[in-house]
Amino acid sequence: ATNIVGKVKWYNSTKNAGFIEQDNGGKDVFVHKSAVDAAGLHSLEEGQDVIFDLEEKQGKAYAVNLRIK
C-alpha cells in the first residue's frame, strides 16, 4: 500500500524504532531508523503527521518512503 496517512504513536531514538498509527484505523505500523534516515530526518516526534508506504517482510508490516505531511 502507498501514501498511507498516519501519526507517530511513539518513536524511541535510543532503540531506533517506533510505531505509526494509521489514520484509516489499520494496525499500527513499525518504523525503523533506516526509514527515518532515508527521509533525511533525525528523529520523529509523537503526534507528528506522516505519509508512508507499507512494505511487508517476513509477514510484518514496515513503514518505508516516509515523509512529513
Rank of each mutant, 00 (worst) to 15 (best):
E55Q: 11
K60I: 09
V29M: 02
A39S: 10
L41R: 05
D23L: 15
T2P: 05
F19S: 05
I51M: 10
I20W: 01
A61N: 10
A38S: 08
D28V: 10
G6S: 01
G25W: 06
G6E: 01
K15I: 13
V5N: 13
E55D: 07
H32E: 08
Q22D: 05
F52W: 01
D28M: 13
L54Q: 04
K9W: 03
K9N: 02
V36F: 05
G18D: 01
V8S: 00
S13F: 11
Q22P: 15
K69I: 14
K33L: 05
Y11M: 06
I51N: 03
W10V: 05
V8H: 00
W10N: 04
V50K: 01
K7E: 01
I4C: 11
L54I: 15
Q58I: 07
I68A: 07
I4L: 15
Q22V: 14
V8Y: 03
N12F: 07
I20G: 00
R67Q: 07
N65Y: 03
E21R: 15
V31C: 02
T2N: 10
Y62G: 03
N12T: 06
Y11D: 01
I51A: 04
G26S: 08
V29K: 01
K15L: 15
L41S: 03
N24M: 09
D37S: 12
A38C: 09
D37C: 14
G59E: 05
K69M: 13
S43C: 13
Q48M: 13
E56G: 06
Q22G: 06
N16W: 10
S13Y: 11
K15P: 02
G18W: 10
N12C: 12
T2M: 12
A38R: 10
E55S: 09
E46L: 12
A63K: 01
H42S: 13
K15G: 06
L41M: 09
A63Q: 01
D49M: 15
V5L: 13
Q58C: 14
E46C: 13
H32I: 06
T14R: 14
A39C: 04
K27M: 10
N16L: 09
D23I: 15
F30T: 03
I20C: 02
N65S: 04
A61F: 15
A63Y: 01
T14E: 12
L66P: 00
K33P: 06
G59C: 07
Y62Q: 10
V5I: 12
Y62S: 08
K9L: 06
V5W: 11
G59A: 04
N24K: 10
E56Q: 11
S34I: 08
E56W: 15
A35W: 04
G6D: 00
A39R: 02
T14K: 14
K69V: 14
V64L: 04
L66K: 00
R67P: 01
V31F: 12
A63E: 01
G47V: 02
A63W: 01
H42K: 13
L66N: 00
L44C: 02
K33G: 11
